[in-house]
């Protein structure tokens, strides 16, 4: 397994996933890097699809470990500075910031397992891969995902109304 190819293929996406899971940019990079360290240190072999699933599973567990203490979950709600991109108008940038805060707060409202299922599904993983990553049976993913989606939308709606 080539270090550069594997890293380039999966690292940016893994950081993005961890960032959505934690709401913390520094923790996201740290956990994504630790996942790669373990991948190479353990000499994990597999197809690119299998490697990708392994990395996401490992990162999911590292996030769980780090945020196991309940009060740490509050960190999800903390503000990170939002840098407007250059081509955004002030209105557009405000809109994006509001959308971002809404989504982050809605994710933070979910229990960790709902958040993991939602984010893995919307990263394109199959029910079987999600089931393997979060240690539930594949047949229960439909039920858990439907519930996570409903709760996320309810949290978004509540945030919009507030």
């Amino acid at each position: 397994m080539d270090f550069d190819t594997t890293f380039d293929a999966h690292y940016p996406e893994l950081v993005r996933y961890c960032h959505r899971l934690t709401g913390d940019g520094d923790a996201a990079e740290d956990i994504a890097q630790e996942s790669f360290v373990r991948l190479f240190d353990h000499g994990v072999e597999g197809t690119p699809v299998g490697i990708r699933a392994w990395l996401f599973k490992t990162a999911t567990h590292l996030v769980r470990d780090r945020y196991r203490v309940d009060r740490n979950r509050k960190r999800l709600l903390e503000e990170n500075p939002v840098m407007p991109t250059e081509h955004d108008s002030p209105e557009r940038s405000l809109e994006r910031r509001e959308a971002r805060e809404l989504a982050r707060a809605a994710l933070a409202d979910l229990v960790p397992r709902d958040r993991e299922i939602l984010l893995m599904r919307y990263s394109g993983f199959s029910y079987k891969e999600i089931a393997d990553a979060i240690d539930v049976s594949a047949t229960s993913i439909g039920t858990l995902l439907a519930r996570a989606e409903r709760r996320f939308e309810e949290a978004c709606a509540a945030g919009e109304a507030a």
Partner: peptide, 12 residues
């Protein structure tokens, strides 16, 4: 949901 999550990207 995909649209809502799309805006959640690292700042840098």
């Amino acid at each position: 949901i995909a649209t809502a999550l799309e805006v959640l990207a690292p700042e840098r």
